[in-house]
Amino acid sequence: MRHIISVLVNDQPRVLARVANLLGRRNFNIESISVGESEEPGLSRMVIVTNGDERMMEQVSKQLHKLVDVIKVQDLSEHPSVARELLLVKVEAGPSVRHEISGIVEPFRASVVDVGPHSMMVQATGERSKLDALLELLRPYGIKEMARTGVTALSRSVARAGV
């Protein structure tokens, strides 16, 4: 099963290496990792997407906890949460198809952020499945380059749980 783990870590040099090293060494797979500031100065939030059964996830969480630079580990899959990813994709697009592509992009609430003579850059955010769907539609035009941030996520407020 796919799990999203949110890890609060000290904003220290090498902390990403420590986490990635641990996951690799213990043979846990990583679908994506994203790191950035957190609400508290001095701490970063890492969001790790991984796959595994219950036993493996328990190990992931316990082993992460053993790292001195790890403050808190939370499996967001156990709670209602919001998970989002940012996608930038450069699509082959001569003048004749630009309108068509804009039409595809619109229902995804994505936007065109750059236009060149033979390509357009589309920016989209959302859940992974939504971005996958958008990519499938853009693929026939030819994808020149793309970059995805990996998932970042937060748990929902308790009052809104289940909404």
Binding site: R55, Q59, K62, Q63, K66
Partner: peptide, 8 residues
């Protein structure tokens, strides 16, 4: 003493 050993 190491919780990670339990269930490993």
């Amino acid at each position: 003493i190491d919780p990670a050993e339990i269930g490993k």
